[in-house]
């Protein structure tokens, strides 16, 4: 742990079952590989019963394992409404990455609540933060061969931003060593597709002037 770096704070928010904790674990392991100090905390509100799962990962020399409102440098949302719900963690300089394929809460699915408009979600986030990378990560996961690899797709997009001092190669090594052998190929593909999607999104959207 000798590398000195600026502290980077990342929030990952997801719905139970989307594999947030695996994504966080891969990031933690990759940071260890990259000799970047890393701490993480997770809150799973009865994850398996449909609640929200949030992880906070802090890279660099800080001691805390949680992130206060307004202090995330990066927000990765596995579900668009959950990304919006976590917006309070962001500030003007935050980079936000979101999957655009919704998982409507049960109340919405049975017609007892309204799901926010996807365009509105994107406009709001774009207007209030530094940059939004938004794409259909479920489609990429399917293309990679397993819809469950949404988490790794989004990890690809995160690494593509270059904000974290972790290289694609370090994540790929971690995927090979720390994820289930049967899914390694799918996960590597998913990671690559996520990197691509973020690169394409960067090509079309210029960051706003602060």
């Amino acid at each position: 742990m000798d590398t000195h770096m600026e502290t980077k704070r990342l929030i990952i928010t997801a719905v139970g079952g989307q594999g947030n904790l695996l994504a966080s674990k891969v990031l933690g392991e990759a940071a260890l590989l990259a000799k970047i100090p890393v701490r993480m905390s997770e809150i799973h509100g009865m994850a398996q019963r449909g609640g929200v799962v949030e992880s906070a990962i802090i890279f660099g020399d800080a001691h805390s394992t949680i992130i206060s409102d307004g202090e995330a440098d990066l927000l990765v949302g596995f579900e668009p409404a959950e990304t919006l719900r976590a917006l309070g963690k962001c500030n003007r300089k935050t980079i936000v990455i979101t999957n655009l394929a919704p998982t409507p809460p049960f109340t919405v699915a049975i017609g007892k609540g309204t799901y926010p408009d996807i365009e509105t979600i994107q406009e709001l986030i774009r207007a209030k933060t530094a940059r939004l990378i938004a794409f259909d990560a479920v489609a990429c996961a399917k293309q990679a061969g397993n819809v469950m690899s949404v988490n790794i797709v989004l990890l690809g997009a995160l690494i593509q931003t270059g904000v974290l001092p972790i290289s694609a190669a370090q994540i790929q090594t971690t995927i090979r060593n720390k994820t289930k052998a049967a899914f390694v190929d799918v996960n590597l593909k998913a990671f690559e597709l996520g990197m691509q999607a973020a690169a394409e999104s960067a090509a079309v959207s210029e960051p706003p002037t602060a």
């Binding site: 719905v15 139970g16 509100g45 009865m46 398996q48 019963r49 449909g50 609640g51 929200v52 206060s68 409102d69 307004g70 202090e71 409404a81 959950e82 919006l84 719900r85 917006l87 309070g88 962001c90 500030n91 003007r92 300089k93 935050t94 409507p104 809460p105 049960f106 109340t107 919405v108 609540g113 309204t114 799901y115 926010p116 408009d117 509105t120 709001l124 209030k128 933060t129």
Partner: peptide, 21 residues
């Protein structure tokens, strides 16, 4: 001063309470 984003204009987001499987 905290640099929190201003949350005005954010629509109500439906809650996601845990539910029996």
């Amino acid at each position: 001063a905290p640099a929190k984003v201003d949350l005005s204009g954010v629509p109500e987001i439906p809650q996601r309470p845990p539910n029996l499987c």
